[in-house]
Design a binder for these strands. Structure first.
Lengths: 84, 84
DNA sequence: ATGTAGACTGTTGTCGACA
DNA sequence: CTGTCGACAACAGTCTACA
């Protein structure tokens, strides 16, 4: 089945982490040195970030990149189970 | 100083993990559904993978993507310390 | 404050060939 | 088995503008 909507899951996680910090997309974009519209696309799963983008975002969110990825794994794993 | 040779560090880690498994670039490429020449470029730090590429590689290497990223963080952190 | 659109630049990732 | 090269298609990431 291969799923491969990693980008959607990443978007969910990113939005959750951002909101938890009561930060706007605009501010996140500014601080991470990325474009506001791009953050929007990321959260909606319309783009897959490169590894360097993940590092930038994690830094601004104050977590380790690996923790961000780990969150994605967890959700992805739940969804795979729900699939059989 | 901003460093930003995340791709070089990722390359180091990828190569280390691959060799530890006594796997050729060719086999890694085949199993991860990526191009052999691209694996070569990744290991030499000439390309930055997207998040989905990281997931593919980690799966073939038999580790969690977050663990792969964590290794990168560690080495990156050592290098930042060595810099002041 | 966010979503979307279109046009754009640069880079990822593919492929064939040769050392 | 790996590095590199050149050509290429596909997609990441920017920017302006409008709802």
């Amino acid at each position: 089945m291969e799923i491969d909507n990693i980008e959607s899951v990443f978007g969910e996680v990113l939005q959750e982490m951002r909101k938890k910090r009561k930060m706007s997309q605009e501010k996140l974009a500014l601080q991470s040195n990325l474009d506001r519209t791009y953050i929007s696309m990321l959260e909606r799963g319309a783009r897959k970030p490169t590894i360097t983008t993940v590092f930038k975002l994690a830094q601004v969110l104050g977590i380790k990149p690996s923790q961000l990825i780990e969150k994605v794994e967890e959700i992805l794993f739940e969804k795979e189970i729900a699939e059989n």
